[in-house]
Every structure is written in C-alpha cells, then in structure tokens.
Amino acid sequence: MAAPLRRSLPSLGRTLLSPSPAPARMLSAAASDALVEIKPGEIGMVSGIPEEHLRRKVVIYSPARTASQQGSGKVGRWKINFVSTQKWENPLMGWTSTGDPYANVGEAGLTFDSADSAKAFAEKHGWDYVVRKRHTPLLKAKSYAENFKWRGPPKAEQA
C-alpha cells in the first residue's frame, strides 16, 4: 500500500530538486536567474521545524540490495538517515516511543532518485550531510555450465 505513495516522492523530488531542469532553477541558490532565491537552510526555517532540528547531521545513502535476492524496490534510490536513536520502550504498552520527529521520516518517507537531489534537499533544510558511497555488485560473465566443463586431462604432476 505504501509503495505507490513512496514511489511518487522521487518524481516530485526530481522536478523540484535536481539542478538541471528548469523548475529547479527557481529554487536554486546558485543560479542568478532564479525567480526565488533560496539560501541553504531557509526552507527549514520557514517550515516550522523546531529549532533544535534545524542543524541536524544526516547521512545520505543508497540502500544496499538485500542479502537475500528479493525486494529490490529500494535499490538504486537514495535515502536520508537521520541518525535518530532517541527511542525507548514505552513502559505503558511496551511500544516504541521516540522524541525525534524525524525518527520515522528517513527510511519510510523520503526517497530520492539521485544523491544530488538528496543533497539539495538536505541543503535546503540546512542539515549537515555526509554522502555514503554506493556499492554495486560486480557483474562477471559466468555460466553455470562452467562448473561441469571438461577441464582437460590430468596435469602431469597429478598423474
């Protein structure tokens, strides 16, 4: 159910945030011909986010493929990890409580098509960010049949 919602975000992100298309220039801080000039961090300030969350440290990363072969929905996309560990088990019901409004935003709520758009988003909100390298599988051409290939007569030393 959540998937279509999540999928819709990157497209929004792309139109608004990536530096090349025209609409992005309107928001770009660097472009001189922008209609509205936005300085880093300004969006954060006007969006009513509590002050203590304006200078956050976030990690921008691209989720690794799962170790098992299923579920590749997040692969190739970029996420923001808010490094939110303010959590505790609520003694009333045993549920998890958190004191961090961003606790559930990162993994579930924000998806970007590229590292750049994630960076732009973080800059806009004035967050300190680190971009983690994305590791991709090394594809090697190999075939299952090779396992059973005739590997020639025994070598001299074995015979």
Binding site: A64, T66, A67, K87, E89, W95, T96, H135, T136, P137
Partner: peptide, 22 residues
Amino acid sequence: SNIRVDSRGPEVMRIVPRLNED
C-alpha cells in the same frame, strides 16, 4: 564487513550482510 543492523525500537534484532565487493 559491511552490515545492516536491523533494529526494532531500541533493540538490535539481527545483523545481515551488505554488499561490498571490495
């Protein structure tokens, strides 16, 4: 080793590998 720590609330539930060819 590159890993993914899977947590539920304040508890680490499991650790799974993360691809890093190097």
